[in-house]
Nucleic acid binder design. Structure first.
Length: 272
DNA sequence: AACTTAGGCAACCGCTTTAAA
DNA sequence: CTTTAAAGCGGTTGCCTAAGT
């Protein structure tokens, strides 16, 4: 469907964007052909994933390793789920995004068969607008300032920041996390769809119950409290791995979340 | 029917992190 | 301990198509 720029290869760039002194065979760019797909699929089936940098040469592809990896991860993997995002998936994305921010790979890790790229695209083209239409800031999930003419912005293709949001007191989902660890956490850092893992997600998510309240998610705060709180118990604002993982799991199950929430409300004499 | 605009998405880019030498 | 390579991630770009005029 969408195509990228035609094989206008910047000749002397390696996959990492570093200059190359010699100019080996020009790397192909742009859309993948069925033949290339087949070569890649066969090669990965035979040799397995990994060593992406050298893969193209070994497989006989005139692509950079990055491109191969991307193609495999986003399109060719056998466990990729095709078709439109279901309503429950959409709902889950919304909830996960509220907690995780733009950690697309983490979100994707909770949606088996969906890729981070797919979710990111879906968010930028659908969900962010949906939130805006509901008067919510797609980044913070907080109500947009009731300023007139606030949201008109999001129409043009500004993907990253559909809405200009002034810095807000409560830390938005993203910034709550240690800045850039989004990517490389652990050996993988990428919770591949289907593996159900969040690696050291909790370590990444250094947030206490107050912090959760900070991004306006009372459920989250309640959940933190119900699990003994994330702050006082541990003496430091860290979220325990299991606790956070189970929280994310609970996001995937409305009923469980509702039950937990209810329990908290009972315990506390009804918050919210 | 022809032209313009907006939406959707695959692919690329640049940066960060981790592992290995 | 430092440097380099590899891998991964989020953000951005740009083409194609559909809808609107």
């Amino acid at each position: 469907m969408a195509r990228r720029k035609p094989p206008a290869q910047h000749g002397a760039r390696s996959e990492d964007g570093q200059a190359q002194s010699t100019a080996p065979p020009p790397l192909k760019r742009g859309p993948w052909t069925a033949e290339e797909d087949e070569v890649l699929v066969r090669f990965v089936a035979r040799e397995g994933e990994g060593r992406w940098r050298t893969l193209p040469r070994r497989a006989g592809l005139l692509r950079c390793g990055k491109s191969c990896r991307l193609r495999w991860m986003n399109y060719l993997r056998p466990d990729i789920k095709r078709g439109p995002i279901a309503e429950d998936e959409e709902d889950l994305i919304l909830r996960l995004h509220r907690v995780l921010g733009n950690r697309w790979s983490l979100i994707a890790g909770r949606l088996p068969g969906r890729t981070d790229n797919e979710i990111k695209n879906y968010w930028n083209s659908h969900l962010s607008k949906k939130l805006i239409a509901q008067g919510l800031d797609p980044r913070t999930h907080m109500p947009l300032a009731a300023a007139p003419g606030k949201t008109a912005a999001a129409t043009h293709k500004t993907t990253a920041a559909p809405v200009v949001v002034p810095p807000q007191p409560p830390p938005p989902p993203g910034p709550v996390l240690p800045t850039s660890s989004a990517a490389g956490t652990g050996s993988d850092g990428h919770d591949n769809p289907g593996d159900g893992g969040n690696d050291d997600l909790a370590a990444t998510m250094s947030v206490d119950a107050d912090g959760f309240e900070g991004f306006g998610d009372q459920l989250l705060a309640d959940y933190a409290a119900s699990r003994g709180g994330f702050e006082d118990v541990m003496g430091c604002p860290m979220v325990d791995d299991d606790t956070f993982t189970s929280f994310l799991d609970s996001l995937m199950n409305e009923r469980q979340l509702a039950a937990d929430h209810k329990g908290v409300m009972n315990d506390q004499g009804g918050a919210i």
